[in-house]
Design a protein around this nucleic acid. Structure first.
Lengths: 229, 229
DNA sequence: CGATCGATCAACACGTGTGTTGACGATCTT
DNA sequence: AAGATCGTCAACACACGTGTTGATCGATCG
């Protein structure tokens, strides 16, 4: 990031083009950084923590990266693009109903969260959208993409309402916040490789979202005590 | 917090018992601190920010509080108790079905979030539950209460399933995470005094949770286009 | 009107975290 | 075996945020 010329960085740049072991170890450092960002938050994570976890001296970290910020950017960059990619490919297929596209995106998104773990959860945790203060091109780009992604989602929900697949007696924004609240809140509890897969979680949430949890959501309403237990 | 004797604190303590203007200004500082904690997070909020916002010198803040931590504790303390109070009073009324109690708690909780704004949202944001590392009595207490509150909620959900008011084909934990994901995610977008009240949001979420968003979830399926729009 | 007291701030001391430097061993090269 | 190079770290310089002190200024009071 810091462009100025320093010996430590000169070494790094020299490294950048070539070696294999180097790239591997660099990736390892990045992995550890992402893990700690997820566990403790960006600010609370000290470079010393990353170094300790990697079994290196703090100074050595700078052999692999220019700064803590750089590690963070590299963790988070691409996350948004992954989400947008997942969404746009469905968006293109106009043969599907909006509700089906929304469903697809919802599931794809959760799977993307899972695959990019823990990067996406770091992204969510650090509230990347409200970096309004920062004037950096980086921040601007994030905000722009987020807004555009958000509009896409809203579009699907509105579409599904117009097409009669979703109730329209609730404000669109609220529906979005309900659905993606469930989804995004996973960053507080979901861990890949545990009881459920990302897809299973997403499908379960989707079922709740569309059908609701009421036992008698279906026409049959009379015999509730006969319910399976 | 810091018990040691310093003149600055001696003054403060002297102030603690008595004055009226003092208490008012102190409350003002606390209010500003809470607001900034909400906007920027605890770590990112510098005492200088609070001072600037309050139109005071940084040093003067210490005339009203012992430390940044103290401001934080005072912001967050009571939040959990408010939630627990809201929950337990319903818990006592055994004449209600579990599903009704869950509904009541859900709405009460959202209203509590609204009334304690922004304190509760700070609480949620700072992930008070996973302060596992800290050994302070304060942290222990928080964790204990959180766990107990969590168990209470799970109990209601299980109860509602047993009583046949909720589908039981979804893991309890997942149902909890869906419902309280929607609720807790409000800390990212809900602002009191805007379009909707806390109660309205909660009721809308509850409706989605129980009935789902599918247009044909309810018995009445025919006149959908007649719906308010 | 000098004394007291409450609120304020300038200046300081300190701790902690970041990023840089230079050097030291190990391995690889010719 | 002399030299180059790579990964490493001890030590340093620096920035920043916190909390403390002592003094100042104005109001209230005897």
């Amino acid at each position: 990031m810091t462009v100025s010329s320093k010996i430590s960085k000169r070494r790094k740049t020299k490294q950048s083009d070539g070696s294999v072991d180097y790239a591997a170890k660099r990736a390892e450092v990045l992995r550890i950084a992402a893990k700690l960002f997820k566990e403790q938050g960006f600010q609370a994570t000290k470079l010393a923590d990353i170094a300790r976890e990697a079994g290196l001296d703090r100074a050595t970290i700078y052999y692999y990266t220019g700064s803590k910020e750089e590690l963070f950017h590299e963790t988070v960059e691409g996350v948004l693009d992954a989400c947008i990619d997942a969404a746009t490919e469905l968006h293109a297929d106009a043969s599907l109903r909006s509700i089906e596209r929304l469903h697809s995106i919802f599931v794809s998104l959760m799977i993307s969260y899972e695959e990019n773990y823990p990067a996406t959860f770091v992204y969510i945790q650090e509230q990347m959208h409200q970096v309004g203060s920062e004037e950096t091109a980086w921040a601007q780009e994030i905000m722009k993409k987020t807004r555009s992604f958000d509009q896409m989602l809203l579009g699907f929900i509105r579409g599904a309402m117009d097409e009669g697949d979703l109730r329209n007696d609730v404000p669109v924004r609220l529906v979005e916040n309900a659905l993606f609240g469930m989804l995004n809140w996973t960053h507080r509890w979901f861990i890949p490789g545990r009881a459920m897969t990302g897809r299973q979680v997403a499908e379960a949430f989707w079922s709740i979202f569309t059908n609701g949890m009421a036992e008698e959501a279906a026409p049959a309403r009379s015999n509730r005590s006969a319910a399976r237990h």
